[in-house]
Amino acid sequence: MTLLDVRDLCVRAPDGRSLVSGLSFSMERGDRLGLIGESGAGKTLAALAVIGLLPRGMSASGSVLLDGEQVLGAPGRRLDRLRGRAAAVVFQEPLTALDPLKRVGALVAEPLRRRRRLRGRALRGAVLDALSEVRLPGPERLARAFPYELSGGQRQRVAIAMALACEPALLIADEPTAALDTTVQAEMLALLDGLVRSSGMGLLLIGHDLGVVAGVADGLLVLHEGRAVERGTAAEIVHAPAHPRTREVVAAARRLHGALDGLAR
């Protein structure tokens, strides 16, 4: 069964403005798709619509089949079951996504208890395993820490651990490294890449940085002003962009990278 099938998705603002229009794409299990575009292009809204988390007042039309189930218009209880099992999300700023009053261990335990029905010692063991899996050093000590005590990179690892604990078929990562230093970003991308590859889950990676997204995703979908203007493999789009907007973006990115790479010669 197709993991995610989006057909003619439209998202409208409360005042009726069209924010995403006529968006269609599909993903099979294990696919790694990058959704790229500048801010305001509709990337995040498209991702939120996929898991039924659009902000209040926004309306969506079209069809979103996630693991065979229709997301648009589905009642909250059905969506709750679908989220986690079918798809989990990692957002840009982990500090806002992590409950500040809960220790890291409790945060990671929640999805494990709900999804894998673990309790007691088995649950504690699974929490430590989950923290080690995202390469967090000293998981015992870390499980007792509060989110504010961690660095940005550590917090994002915790958020990834929570998402993976659900064993989702699809991981949606919305600018997961935009708030991190470049060296931490590089480690985080390598970690995501490895985890997604080894578990065979699908990855929908959202970002504005062509180098970041193209480095992890196999396929790219370029959004501009709410519409998909181009799709193809990452290499095709970087080396032969067809749409005028994509050409501008690629030319700009190549110039910046060229300036740095040119120094090494």
Partner: peptide, 8 residues
């Protein structure tokens, strides 16, 4: 320098 994401 190594951390800068490269284009494919």
């Amino acid at each position: 320098v190594a951390g800068v994401p490269r284009l494919p």
